[in-house]
Design a protein around this nucleic acid. Structure first.
Lengths: 139, 139
DNA sequence: CTTTTAAATCGGATACGTTCTGATTTACTA
DNA sequence: TAGTAAATCAGAACGTATCCGATTTAAAAG
């Protein structure tokens, strides 16, 4: 997903345009990594030094709801990244040090032949964790 | 894993026996469900009314480290259950309402033919989420 | 059985990520 | 340009989890 697509989606859904929203999305778009709210705050400080935590969290939450951002959790902290591409379901290999990701083509849900009928399935999570080359080298 | 096996493991590793530890394990053993620390506290109140949060969290953490308990996270809260059985790797279908689980035999890691060589894989998570029959009916 | 000692527990303070609140500002519309 | 609802702010509040120093206790040593 591109920054433009994300902004377009916001507009369609009736959300107002703000520079802060664009900047949050832009920051997430810059890297194929999961960022924490804190990291996003850090990077946005240059342009909006007085941005409040609430604004970041509230917007991130909206973006996740709309599918603009993907969310995971590392070390008790929410982490976010721009959704990869619309309508193309896949999973990630995630560096637990820096949040860097690599795409995995397979989805295990396709491979589960029998699904228990006593559960109404609502979602799933498949993530592979590891350490990326960069984080191994300067460890 | 049984309560006895868990206690045996603690002994082997040099941990002291305490009634509180046994009770925590026993509570987790009673159900095939993920419980929060709060829920464990609730259930242990009868026998140990003054049990401190710290004791529960510290012991749970020890148990997770030793592989006696399995951990996941629902709604920003750590959830725990007795590890299924020693040396038998599998995954779970989890009810997001009550934490009830159902076992899945397949592990997606076996099915990933190509593993990126720029990551040193350290772990993985595969969980299917849903709502169990009981939670659907009284919803 | 008594003493000893390190581990376990207590409970209260603290940390941290996140969310809420009420006042203020701002983007869009009429 | 004025009006309105949404967005933001700053700080308080929240919930989970951990840390702390003092006290108790399990179990090893005498």
């Amino acid at each position: 997903m591109t920054v433009e697509e994300a902004l377009q989606m916001l507009k369609e859904k009736g959300y107002k345009y703000t520079g802060k929203r664009e900047e949050i999305i832009r920051i997430c778009a810059e890297e194929k990594r999961y960022l924490s709210a804190k990291e996003i705050m850090e990077r946005i400080k240059d342009q909006y030094p007085n941005l409040s935590f609430d604004t970041v969290y509230r917007n991130i939450s909206t973006f996740v709801d709309l599918g603009i951002l993907e969310q995971t959790e590392l070390e008790g902290e929410g982490r976010f990244r721009l959704a990869c591409s619309v309508g193309h379901h896949h999973h990630h290999l995630i560096c637990t040090e820096c949040g860097k990701t690599s795409s995995l083509s397979a989805c295990p849900m396709n491979l589960l032949s029998v699904m228990p009928d006593d559960f109404q399935v609502t979602g799933h999570k498949f993530e592979v964790y590891g350490t990326c080359k960069e984080c191994i080298s300067h460890a």
